[in-house]
């Protein structure tokens, strides 16, 4: 680029006015929800519902550990073979059974966290999941992880969109704000 092509502000126009021109805001938000812990699922759902409230087309693509919060709370053991069943035993699904990534203390940590949240009128992950559905957030489970972990569509909550793959997720992410949580 030659120096001559650099645009100069037209004479008489204040420089600040030009500097104020911001890049266009993204119309979409796509979150890759990879984690299954309370302290990561919570911000995922806060950001997703807020994105929808800001008028952004919002998608959450749930993959790997992120799939387990989508398991119905009343479903206990999932999977067909002993490895998949063991996985669900060791890592209970459901948005009301989430563990903390630190200070879990065999469930005492999340119990205290939930107590504090109630005290401060903070919506729980379960409530935010319902809000997200109501606001039209696209909740998409990852098909490959479902197959590998032995999670069937009927093990997962209602209100999700068709399970999809990485291509669909990346296609949705074009031109969007993208977060990997």
């Amino acid at each position: 680029m030659s120096i001559d092509t650099i645009q100069k502000p037209p004479i008489g126009q204040p420089v600040e006015q030009i500097a104020e021109k911001k890049p266009e805001t993204a119309e979409k938000l796509v979150i890759f929800a990879w984690s299954g812990e309370l302290d990561k699922v919570w911000p995922t759902l806060i950001l997703a519902t807020t994105g929808a409230a800001m008028g952004k087309e919002t998608t959450v693509f749930f993959t790997f550990w992120g799939l387990f919060p989508l398991v119905k709370n009343q479903v206990r053991i999932t999977g067909e073979n002993w490895m998949q069943k063991m996985l669900s035993m060791m890592n209970r699904g459901g948005d009301e059974h989430l563990k903390l990534s630190k200070m879990n203390f065999a469930g005492a940590g999340p119990a205290m966290m939930n107590h504090l949240a109630k005290e401060h009128h903070v919506a729980s992950p379960h409530e935010l999941m319902e809000v997200a559905k109501e606001m039209g957030v696209h909740l998409i489970p990852c098909q490959m992880t479902m197959d590998m972990m032995g999670l069937k569509r009927e093990d997962l909550i209602d209100g999700l969109e068709e399970p999809a793959g990485a291509t669909k997720a990346l296609a949705d992410a074009q031109g969007a704000i993208t977060l990997f949580i």
Partner: peptide, 9 residues
């Protein structure tokens, strides 16, 4: 009394 993100939602 409501906390983030409920007021905006």
């Amino acid at each position: 009394g409501l906390s983030c993100p409920l007021p905006i939602i």
